[in-house]
Every structure is written in C-alpha cells, then in structure tokens.
Amino acid sequence: MEPSDEALCQRVAERDEAAFDLLVARYQERAYRIAWSVLRDGEEARDVSQEAFIRLYQAAGGFGGRARFSTWFYRILVNLCLDHRRKHAWWKRVLGGGRPDEPDGREAVIERQPAEPVDPLAGLGREQVMTQLWAAVATLSPQQRAVVTLHVQDELPTREIAGVLSCSEATVRVHLHRALISLRATLGKA
C-alpha cells in the first residue's frame, strides 16, 4: 500500500531522503503547472516550484497535519509564486515591458495553446474564442488566476483554495466571481 502524502511528509521531517524523492515525484508536475499558470514563464515556474520543494524539505517538521498535505504544500508554492511576481513586477515596469517571449502577457499564451480536441461541432470561431478566453485568463490578477487554476485544473473546492491562499472562503468566492465576470465580458466582445 502506498504511503499517504501526510505520512511521507512526516518521514521527510525525520530527514528520510527517499520519502522526499517520492513526494517530489508525486507533486512535481502539479507544482510546475500551478507555478506556470501564475507566472506564465517556464524557467521561472521551474525555479519557483523547485524552491517550493526545498521549503517543503526545510519546513516538513512544521506540518502539523491539521490540513491536507496538498493544501499545505500548495500554500507554500502559491505564496512563492505571488512573492516572485511582486518582486519582479517593479523590474518589469522599469524595463518597460515583459520578457521577450511574453511581450504583453497575451501572445505567449496564444502560442502555447494546445491543439483543440477534435470536435465536429467546433469550428474555427470556437477555437478563436477559446484562444481569446485563455488570453483573458493571463490578464487576470495573480490571485484571481490562482483561484481559477486551482478550481479548473486541480479541481480544488473553495475551502481548500482558501487554505492554499490563506484567506477566507468568501474572499475566494469573490476572486472567482470577479474573474468569471471579466472572462464573460471577454466572450461578449468576441
């Protein structure tokens, strides 16, 4: 029987390297994807998600088991992502724009769109709408984007998202509602 995440975290606290490797293997893809959804940069997402694992290793003893391990770990990760964005926002403003691969925060998202699943009812118009919709997601605030990502891609309930973002459930609901209002407006213009 596979050990639970919580049991592995306990073993990491006792400096069990194998347990740490197992947790990394379980969460590396999810951690990287969440970091990327907030940061929209592959290199930064890689660095920040690795940093989250290092923090996990260092702070495993502080995991009290009151929340699920995933909530606790995502909190570390999302906080690192938001801190990273805050620190780099000033430099981006000074340098007058985003990174070369992401000049306005939209193009890169459009380029990274996967091929649409084959849908006989979907035409070119629908594909364009989805491209615009994801471009609009990229322009949401980091908190709103984190809520949308955790809701849509990780299917976390509101209560867990609140735990990850260290805020109330009501705040998560407001973030999600505002994000949806914004995205709906984008669809209205499309």
Binding site: Y32, R112, P114, L133, V137, V152, Q153, L187
Partner: peptide, 20 residues
C-alpha cells in the same frame, strides 16, 4: 466558461523531469 477552461487548459513548456 469553467467547463471550457477545464477542457482546453494550455500545457506549460515540457520539462525533462529527471533533470528537474
């Protein structure tokens, strides 16, 4: 909107997990 986003979520750049 949420259902569409869930179906069409963009994938981040691929990562060689061993190197990661």
């Amino acid at each position: 909107i949420l259902e569409s986003l869930a179906r069409t979520a963009p994938e981040p750049p691929a990562v060689p997990w061993g190197r990661y």
